[in-house]
């Protein structure tokens, strides 16, 4: 328990950020706790995004906590506000509206963003993303305008979305590349099993191939693959996994590789700054190596551990039990994801 009342700032309103905020509040009842998030929506449950497409529920149905939870816990929530710079020497953040925010201790839990393969970067405007509550809201508004969707790449979010699309009577094509299906432990056996399961669901699977080009064709799109296939579709979803969302750290001096490098106590290379969740690349003593973490289970755990360390309780990380998703009765091992399935 800390004696001095500090100001804790958390960048990110996801699983890691909220888990940390809860722990900090319990451990330091008198401190200032601020969550800053670029997203306009509240902390939501990712596993509900696809089912949200199927009903008419309000967006608040996705939220994990009602806003009164933050009020009751005296946690200041700053939504729709973007951190553009971190200045560790001054213990300061700069927001996009030029406000400078002071912190005593900072947790970066800015999560991940959809991975856009370099080869497809010029087709960004033709790709649809489906990673947060706003994406779900926008997609629900135009459900009546399309019949066929294509998943560009393979990831669990795409699987989940495909499940919703099937329920809505849309036809679905996956264009899988030969190397991965984020974030499954992926090898030839898993791949064959996965393809089999998808086909049982009447999903077209183009395997061992990759999308190389997307071309507008009137109101529709043509998705072209390396092996010369052309998929005529209405919407092309970017489902190639996620990468850490850490662009705002450029010039901060904080060490990053794929994500923000943190030690087993979730501390970054900068004083009084910790990182947790999908933005962090964590050193695991069991592995004697760093690992990029993904998924809700890991994020919550790491957010909690970070907060304990921010409260000066020395807590080291340990590997979480792998998660699993199930398709057509078959289990697939994931790193930290749960609640996602094509069988929604």
């Amino acid at each position: 328990m800390q004696k001095k009342s500090l100001k804790y700032v958390i960048i990110g309103d996801g699983h890691a950020g909220n888990s940390a905020a809860e722990t900090l509040r319990k451990g330091s009842p008198g401190s200032d706790i601020v969550i800053i998030s670029t997203k306009p929506t509240h902390y939501f449950d990712h596993s509900l995004l696809a089912t949200f497409l199927l009903d008419k529920k309000d967006i608040t149905s996705l939220y994990v906590y009602p806003y009164t939870w933050y009020k009751d816990n005296n946690i200041r929530l700053r939504l729709n506000q973007t951190v553009t710079k971190v200045i560790p020497d001054k213990h300061e953040l700069i927001l996009s509206h030029n406000e400078r925010v002071y912190y005593d201790r900072l947790l970066i839990a800015s999560g991940a963003k959809p991975k856009l393969p370099e080869s497809l970067s010029r087709y960004k405007s033709l790709l649809t993303v489906f990673t947060d509550a706003v994406d779900a809201m926008k997609l629900r508004e135009k459900l009546g305008t399309f019949r066929h969707v294509t998943m560009v790449g393979g990831d669990c979010i795409g699987l989940h979305l495909a499940g919703a699309m099937l329920k809505l009577g849309k036809s679905v094509t996956f264009v899988l590349n030969e190397y991965n299906f984020w974030p499954l432990e992926f090898d030839e056996t898993v791949k064959d099993k996965l393809i089999g399961c998808l086909k049982k669901k009447h999903i077209e699977v183009i395997a061992d191939d990759m999308t190389t080009e997307i071309v507008k064709d009137g109101t529709r799109l043509n998705v072209l693959t390396k092996n010369g296939k052309i998929v005529k579709t209405d919407l092309a979803f970017l489902t190639s996994g996620m990468v850490p969302n850490i662009d705002f750290l450029d010039g901060s001096g904080i060490d990053v590789q794929t994500g923000i490098l943190v030690d087993e106590y979730m501390h970054t290379s900068a004083q009084d700054i910790w990182a947790a969740g999908e933005c962090a690349t964590v050193y695991y003593p069991e592995l004697k190596d760093y690992r990029q973490t993904t998924g809700e289970v890991n994020a919550k755990m790491l957010g909690n551990i970070s907060a304990k360390n921010m409260l000066d309780e020395k807590r080291a990380v340990s590997l979480a039990e792998p998660g699993k998703i199930t398709i057509e009765g078959e289990d697939f091992i994931t790193y930290g994801w749960k609640g996602f399935s094509i069988d929604i």
């Binding site: 306009p40 030029n98 406000e99």
Partner: peptide, 20 residues
């Protein structure tokens, strides 16, 4: 006075909607 004190963005309640 700090910029945190003079910017409205940091003073909203958790249920409020902020549009910039």
């Amino acid at each position: 006075i700090t910029s945190e004190q003079v910017s409205i963005a940091g003073h909203l309640g958790p249920g409020m909607y902020l549009y910039g």
